[in-house]
Simulated assay, not measured.
Amino acid sequence: MRSSARRARLGDTAIAALTVVALGSAVWLLGGGAGEHAPPQPPAAEGRPDPGGERLAAPPLAPSPPTRIRIPAIHVNAPLMALALTPAGSLDVPPADRKNLAGWYEAGTMPGETGTAIVAGHVDNTEGPAVFYDLGALRRGARIEVDRQDGSVAVFTVDAVEVYAASAFPDEKVYGAAARPELRVITCGGGYSRTTGYRGNVVVFARLTGSR
């Protein structure tokens, strides 16, 4: 995954807006051809504002670290590890060889509390599809559940799914602070080049709509 080198705000923490972060290798694409195996990309219609997207979210939850993310519509059920920033100021990523592992930015907002929580994971690795391979197939209204260390589950509803070129990544829109509990789920996307890799990122925008 890659984005520009501008600075963005994530709660009270400044984050270099993902200079170069690899969330997909696509090496396995080269054997069978990207046309046959390329991960799905969201249609433009999924980027339009959800008519209910500006409604207030559910009441925020007390801070508690997340432990697992589930997205039933695309069969994701994956543990979460904490992610920090690299020395260059970009978000680190889960180990590429653990394809069913995602991560959350631990210096930012915890999923369920007020603000913008960030979860990232690989679209593929050298062996094939990884945890967020089908992220681009997600649609508005889909449910995302995040298990938390205190035993609660934060339930989010997808408001939009968009794909951005690396050269036009909207840092503030994706990483900017929010006045309600929100979630971003990010992976690589935007097509694949044999010379430069994935051209951009798929981003899911969701808001907290319940808990249990």
Rank of each mutant, 00 (worst) to 15 (best):
P72N: 08
I74F: 00
H75W: 00
V76D: 03
N77F: 01
N77V: 06
N77K: 03
P79V: 07
P79C: 08
L80S: 05
M81I: 15
L83Q: 10
A84Q: 12
T86L: 15
G89M: 11
G89F: 08
L91C: 09
V93E: 15
P94Q: 12
P95F: 02
P95H: 09
A96L: 11
N100F: 08
N100I: 09
A102P: 05
G103D: 09
G103L: 10
G108Y: 05
T109V: 11
M110P: 00
M110H: 10
P111R: 08
G112T: 07
G112E: 05
T114L: 02
T114C: 09
T116N: 11
I118H: 00
V119L: 09
V119F: 00
A120K: 04
H122M: 12
V123R: 07
T126C: 05
T126F: 10
E127G: 06
G128T: 03
V131G: 02
V131C: 06
F132V: 02
F132I: 04
D134R: 14
G136I: 03
A137G: 11
L138C: 02
G141K: 07
A142C: 03
R143I: 15
R143M: 14
V146Y: 06
D147N: 04
D147C: 01
Q149S: 02
D150E: 05
D150M: 04
